[in-house]
Nucleic acid binder design. Structure first.
Length: 585
RNA sequence: GGCCCCGUCGUCUAGAGGCCUAGGACGCCGCCCUCUCAAGGCGGUAGCGUGGGUUCAAAUCCCAUCGGGGCUACCA
């Protein structure tokens, strides 16, 4: 089914409304692209006021001039952006209009490490990358950052792919489907990383390091005591001559990047604004391990450069590593990318969301009966708002309106209650065919057999009734189950509350009498007959109908009674009521 | 400890000095509808962390403070 068609209830077609409250001339944090023109820099020195921090932004510190305007096309500045049909499924694919200006489309990547299952936080990062790419007509690339051999597994890799597909976040290029840039799996590219590392060493930008963990610990401890920066600055390394000697004798060494000090790296993060990191606080970090494999910093940066990534949208946990990546990028002679660091997802206790908060794996949500549309919608809202006080929006609508620069900087607490509510909204919005396709297997599993043609027809009749009543898919099975199984036991609480009371037998006897010769057997005639019955026996609707409900469904919670009886059929209905009646005496 | 990020109802958020008596959504509570449970309708609860400033006016600007989080690996 088209994942975009699930929900269509809110957000009638309209456009331009997002501009409503923001005057077009209001300054934004990101400079117009004239700044690319270095010739005017000195006399123009455009600086604008950051709306978040009030800080002045100087053009000189801005990232990647060549790339500066790519994301700006998403902004409210665009005078009018016609809303595209929700059915255009390949909307993401190159809209020439949107890449005007720089003449290049944004390329973003989602680069999980297969060291764990796809969890909700990673899924949100993937989603934001996807929304950004589609909104800009750019490319969404999937890469596997599997440089941690010890912890990476094929099982995790498959889980990530599987659930990305399930969510409908189709990638244009990358892992499994390939693309124009070779392998998208880092473990295939070790030679390339070594080559870069060697080049860096040759050019003096990196060096072989023999410092041991113990030495480094001592260094940091002393720095702390002395009140100086604990960032390793290479001061423990032997002389050049000794390095050559030890290397020649076959001694293993790591390769560290030589961070230029003093100095600082500044960049303008799309979500967090101006950032500045003093190099004194940045370690001479390891880029190549002693076994010759690359670390994350190297592999990730090299790939971002090699694959012409323009925007890196990732979790805030990598924010303080960003200067390392920028330094590496520039040491490679490449233009830096634009960064956007997303706040982290938290558990109800305010700590970073993790396993100890319960299930965080996408697989678990899928199994629990969540719809991908609901997950996407909910995850998108964690840190971003659609606008106009709207809460429900399809993927297409979110693509239309997505704007990275309005993403919240606050960490967001994941609230399962709201997700559940939203899932109910999406379930109610499913059309019946979709709904049957999604729930029939669950019903069959619950019933313990494959449903016959006839059973399926009866299920179809029940569908409109149960579809309104479920927040999670499996609830449907427990509500529909009574149609297909014998009632050999009754819910204990239900029995004692409505059956084993004075009105129980009265209602059942009355129902038998009223229904025995009823013709025709329809919801309307059943309704009329049973209402006449309770009237006659002086029973309230509750007292009169609940015993019947328990008799036919086994529980005092079920789909609406008269409809259920019609679908069940007269014979089965009467048999069940009689069985319950005799169990009562 | 150091560096960095973040503080509006319980939660996600709107908010760009007067449109704020702070809006929406989830949750919770109540009422209506009602054969149960939902859904739906209506109403309610609840928030600008604190203290100073600037200003005729501050959720919004400044400073401090407190609180939460991240990083500080030959993990990513």
């Amino acid at each position: 089914m088209d994942p975009c068609e699930g929900v269509r209830l809110v957000l009638p077609a309209r456009s331009g409304h997002r501009h409503r409250s923001r005057s077009p001339g209001r300054s934004r944090r990101h400079l117009p692209c004239e700044r690319r023109d270095t010739s005017v820099r000195h006399d123009r020195r455009p600086h604008i006021r950051c709306r978040r921090t009030g800080v002045l932004h100087l053009v000189d510190h801005d990232a990647a001039p060549r790339r500066c305007d790519t994301y700006r096309h998403t902004s409210r500045r665009r005078p009018h952006r016609p809303r595209r049909s929700s059915r255009s499924r390949d909307r993401g694919c190159r809209n020439p209009d949107e890449s005007s200006g720089a003449g290049m489309t944004p390329r973003v990547r989602f680069a999980p490490s297969p060291t764990g299952y796809l969890h909700v936080g990673a899924a949100r990062t993937a989603l934001y990358n996807y929304l950004f790419a589609r909104n800009n007509g750019g490319a969404f690339i999937l890469r596997s950052d599997d440089t941690d051999k010890a912890r990476s597994t094929d099982e995790f890799q498959e889980d990530i792919l599987e659930h990305l597909r399930w969510l409908g976040l189709e990638w244009d290029e990358g892992f499994e489907i390939g693309g124009t840039h070779g392998s998208y799996r880092q473990s295939d590219r070790y030679d390339r990383y070594r080559e870069v590392a060697k080049d860096l060493v040759d050019r003096g930008r990196a060096y072989y390091s023999f410092a041991t963990a113990e030495q480094l610990d001592a260094f940091k401890r002393e720095a702390r005591e002395a009140g100086t920066s604990p960032a390793y600055d290479g001061s423990l390394e032997p002389s050049d001559a000794e390095v050559s000697e030890r290397l020649a004798s076959g001694e293993k060494a790591v390769v560290r990047f030589r961070v230029p000090r003093p100095g600082a790296t500044e960049f303008d993060d799309i979500v967090r604004g101006d950032m500045r990191f003093e190099h004194a606080q940045v370690d001479d970090f390891v880029i190549l391990r002693s076994d010759g494999t690359p670390t994350y910093h190297l592999a990730s940066t090299v790939d971002d450069v090699d694959y012409a990534i323009t925007h890196v949208i990732r979790g805030e946990d990598l924010l303080s590593s960003t200067p390392k990546h920028i330094l590496l990028t520039e040491a490679m002679g490449a233009d830096r990318v634009t960064y956007a660091h997303l706040s982290l997802l938290m558990g109800p206790d305010g700590k970073k969301l993790s396993k100890r908060h319960g299930d965080t794996a996408m697989a678990a949500y899928r199994e629990t009966g969540y719809l991908p549309e609901a997950l996407n919608n909910y995850l998108a809202l964690l840190g971003w708002n659609i606008g106009d006080d709207e809460t429900i929006a399809s993927l297409d609508e979110m693509i239309d309106r997505f704007d990275l620069s309005t993403v919240s900087k606050n960490p967001a607490v994941f609230d399962p209650k709201k997700l559940e509510w939203m899932n109910g909204v999406y379930i109610r919005e499913m059309d019946e065919a979709e709904f049957v396709a999604a729930t029939l297997p669950l019903v069959e599993e619950s019933v313990g057999r494959t449903l016959s043609e006839e059973d399926r027809a009866r299920y179809a009749m029940l569908v409109p009734l149960v579809k309104e009543r479920a927040k999670l898919l499996p609830e449907v099975a427990s509500q529909a189950r009574f149609l297909f199984v014998d009632i050999d036991e009754y819910d204990e609480k239900s029995w004692s509350k409505v059956m084993a009371v004075e009105e129980g037998p009265v209602a059942l006897d009355g129902a038998i009498a009223a229904l025995e010769d009823l013709d025709p057997w329809t919801t309307e005639t059943i309704d009329a007959a049973l209402r006449a019955m309770i009237e006659e026996r002086d029973l309230s609707a509750r007292k009169g109908f609940q015993p019947i409900r328990v008799a036919v469904s086994g529980s005092m919670v079920s789909p609406p009674l008269f409809e259920s009886l019609e679908i069940l059929g007269r014979d089965e209905t009467l048999a069940r009521i009689r069985a319950a009646r005799s169990a009562l005496s």
